[in-house]
Amino acid sequence: MSQALIIVARGVRTLTYGILSVVLAVLLADKGLSPTLVGVLFTVALIAGAVWAAVLSQIADRVGRRTILIVAGLMTTLSALLLAWANGFPLLLLAVALGTVSPSAAEVGPFGALEQAMLAQIVAAQRRTRAFAVYNLVGTFAIAVGALAASIFSRTTLLWAYGLSGLLLAACYAGLGSEVELRAAQPARHAAAHPASLPAKGFGVVERLTALFGVDALAGGLVVQSFIAYWFHLRFGVDERVLGELLFGANLLAAFSFLAAARLAERFGLLNTMVFTHLPSNVLLALVPLMPTLPLAMAVLWLRFALSQMDVPTRQAYTMAIVPPQERARAAGLTNAIRPGAQAISPILAGLAVQHAAFGLPFYLAGAIKIVYDLALYRIFKPVKLRD
């Protein structure tokens, strides 16, 4: 029951992320904010989401995971009310500073981190990657549905849906059983299970993973989907219809790749699946601007998306598997927080991307940085033993 509620909560939340990714900028502009102030609010939203994810995950096992998530759900409703009714910049700033507004459809706030820790708590180790695959599959489809809904329903309806989602989230989390909380007996049993692992204190396993994931996220900021669409428009002169088909196909392949990742991980291991699916996808990324025709460029990009997201469920399962249970909430908090934190500087990266879009420099840079990330991840973590 708890696993199903976590999946439902993920779907409800990411549905609203998809809605906000379409309507938020227009909503703020219609309230009289300049493009600069809209950019400021987006940056604050991402930074606040990262900070709250990192901070609340550190105290969740003392306060209670369910308690933190219920409060965060209610904060979502408060953010929706402020976005709907506030017109001045200070109140809108408060709305995004609560850490539950996602301008990019990426995970923000404590939700993802604590949900991942809870899934790891209640799902057996051998089924964990498959559970994370379903978790991400639901989230990806919900974002797509939310974006589609934003083109159908009125803005008032969408804001009401966003506010209602916070109450639904609180209800889902209130319905979770006590098994999602950290068991008091676990720390002693696991404390010395694998002395060969990287140190748990100082700049240990969690911090190294977080740093590496930050490098990956930073490189990803060079080739966000909006830039990919812009580059295809400049290079091949395609219109919005073709771009929509291109990105729909890319996201569809990425979503179904989550299920394939679970099967590969069961056979070859989590780290091997993470690295040896991500590595060729980054080579393909660097090849996209070298393609002479639109069909070839689309085919290479689609093939890249069919591989590039396989590391998402495996990365989450791996993070949960290399730390003891009492470290899972903290590990998920830091590794989740680094991604919106890195995205917060995406306006700077976007400037570089636009200036050099014609000959594809961002594709080369992103591919190269991500390849270095893959090789470093494998070298550093290959000796680390899983705790499960």
Score class of each variant (00 low, 15 high):
Met1His: 09
Ala4Glu: 14
Ile19Thr: 06
Ser21Leu: 13
Ser21Phe: 11
Ala29Glu: 10
Asp30His: 13
Asp30Ser: 14
Gly32Trp: 09
Thr36Phe: 12
Val38Cys: 09
Val38His: 09
Leu41Ala: 10
Asp61Ile: 12
Val63Cys: 12
Ile68Lys: 03
Thr76Cys: 05
Asn87Glu: 11
Leu93Pro: 00
Ala95Trp: 00
Leu98Ser: 13
Gly99Cys: 08
Ala105Trp: 00
Glu107Tyr: 09
Val108Met: 11
Phe111Thr: 02
Gly112Gln: 06
Ala113Asp: 01
Glu115Lys: 01
Gln116Leu: 01
Leu119Asp: 03
Ile122Arg: 07
Ile122Asp: 07
Thr129Cys: 08
Phe132Ala: 00
Ala133Asp: 04
Ala133His: 04
Asn136Gly: 08
Asn136His: 09
Thr140His: 04
Ile143Trp: 04
Ala144Glu: 09
Ser151Gln: 15
Leu159Pro: 05
Ala161Glu: 02
Ala161Lys: 03
Ala170Trp: 03
Ala171Arg: 06
Tyr173Leu: 01
Gly177Pro: 07
Ala192His: 14
Ala193Gln: 06
Ser197Cys: 14
Leu218Lys: 03
Ala219Ser: 15
Leu222Thr: 03
Val223Asn: 02
Val224Thr: 07
Ile228Gly: 01
Phe236Met: 04
Arg241Ile: 15
Leu243Cys: 04
Gly244Trp: 00
Glu245Ala: 12
Glu245Pro: 01
Leu246Lys: 05
Leu247Ile: 14
Phe248His: 01
Leu252Val: 14
Leu253Cys: 15
Leu253Glu: 07
Ser257Trp: 06
Asn272Ile: 00
Thr277Pro: 02
Leu279Lys: 13
Ser281Gln: 08
Asn282Ile: 04
Ala286Ser: 15
Leu287Pro: 08
Ala297Asn: 06
Ala299Arg: 09
Leu301Glu: 01
Met310Arg: 00
Ala317Pro: 05
Tyr318Asn: 09
Val323Gln: 06
Ala329Leu: 06
Ala331Asp: 05
Pro340Leu: 07
Pro340Thr: 05
Ala342Phe: 08
Gln343Lys: 11
Gln343Phe: 12
Ile345Asp: 03
Ser346Phe: 00
Gln355Val: 11
Gln355Asp: 14
Gly360Trp: 01
Pro362Ala: 02
Leu365Phe: 13
Ala366Met: 10
Ala368Leu: 13
Ile369Arg: 02
Tyr373Glu: 11
Tyr373Gln: 12
Tyr373Phe: 15
Leu375Glu: 08
Leu375Ser: 06
